[in-house]
Design a protein around this nucleic acid. Structure first.
Lengths: 224, 224
DNA sequence: ACCTGAACACCGTTCAAGT
DNA sequence: ACCTGAACACCGTTCAAGT
């Protein structure tokens, strides 16, 4: 039955929301923010810009969908056997790494006019369950979960912005060295603290530092 | 000596970086992000768009300068008599309120190609000094300060995004009620936690919640 | 030194026309 | 139902020309 002439004149599979969003993610990853153009996107999908509008209402929805897609895969892992603490650490690292790999996600998480529960809410839910498992009293549940969430989104967002800034040239260590050097040259009167801790930048690991912050907050949660 | 003819033909004072940045802040506050146009800005300053480029290199610098200006006034207060804890709370609230009043700042803090120490670094320094005053050991100084900073920037940023989304219509309480109602209608299997805490949204105060998070982290810092 | 404003290249979005 | 691509309104930025 498979006798339909399948001439190999590279015909594209039909356009679909999925393919469009996937292409958008790829473009965002390579060309960075504002490189996502309806024309560029159309070319990559070998159509005209107008075609995209049949599947997607506009650029806002496109960005929201791309963001949603990244977050969904970032938090999909789920280790049921881990302790609440470890589960929170794993979840946090998942978000951290996703934001690092897709530096545009952080900025777009906030302004998401998403359908269905927002990506943010989905992360919140995941964190909340673990906080609950931690045995935190009902009254502070909300505060504990949202403090963690806000910290995670804060770091992940800032870190992604840094990544975006530092990328082209040198590796991370060189960049940190340069920053440390710059900090040590600041006005001693106005930047006493920053100068003090500049040295610590040299043996700084972003992920470790991030986790240390998580542990600090977990400490505060379980101490209360 | 003040006899120079001052004909009242509303002549503008000359253009200057200061006036341009101030006008940009006003536009951003009223029209929200992308309403800041070189044409709109030029009209408000009653010149052509080209004139602005003599004082400012482009839109990126303009946004950075506007962001810088807001942050500078936000952290300018300084109560030398306060305890470190209170000083941190006051500083945090200052940032929170500034981001709330100027919802576009959060998104632009990250991508700031600012001259001089970045606004972020200036906040970091202020926090760090207080953390130092708290008697935190040298080794955890950096972690403590950046955890606080990241939390503050995270909340402030997210909160500003919410503000931007909810503004036009109803007041805050109505919005929270609506959100709580929406949360309570989520799938019980997948959003058990969110449904659990939905009720707490109804007696939720953003600033208080924000401060509660700060205290949680301060607890973790001083417990370590 | 500083301002003017037309012009350029480019963008998101629309829409009549096609299949 | 879905795609095409020209057209519209608008944007950041440049630059020759003015004062």
């Amino acid at each position: 039955m498979a006798t339909r002439t399948r001439r190999s004149e590279r015909r594209q599979e039909p356009l679909s929301r999925e393919r469009i969003v996937a292409a958008a993610v790829e473009i965002l990853d390579t060309v960075d923010e504002g490189g996502l153009t309806f024309r560029a996107l159309a070319e990559r999908l070998s159509t005209g810009p107008g075609a995209i509008y049949w599947h997607v209402t506009g650029k806002a929805e496109l960005l929201a969908a791309a963001t949603d897609a990244v977050v969904t895969t970032a938090i999909s892992a789920d280790d049921a056997d881990a302790t609440p603490q470890d589960a929170i650490r794993a979840l946090a690292l998942g978000v951290f790494d996703a934001f690092d790999a897709h530096p545009w996600v952080g900025a777009n998480l906030a302004r998401t006019p998403s359908p269905s529960p927002s990506p943010k809410l989905r992360i919140f839910e995941r964190i909340g369950r673990q906080v609950q498992a931690l045995g935190v009293p009902e009254a502070t549940l909300f505060t504990a979960a949202s403090t963690l969430l806000n910290y995670i989104l804060g770091v992940a967002g800032q870190n992604a912005a840094n990544t975006r800034k530092a990328r082209p040239g040198a590796n991370r260590t060189e960049f940190l060295d340069a920053t440390a050097a710059a900090w040590e040259e600041l006005d001693p009167g106005r930047y006493a603290f920053t100068r003090d801790v500049a040295g610590q930048l040299r043996e700084h690991d972003d992920r470790e530092e991030f986790l240390a912050g998580i542990d600090l907050i977990l400490g505060g949660i379980t101490a209360g």
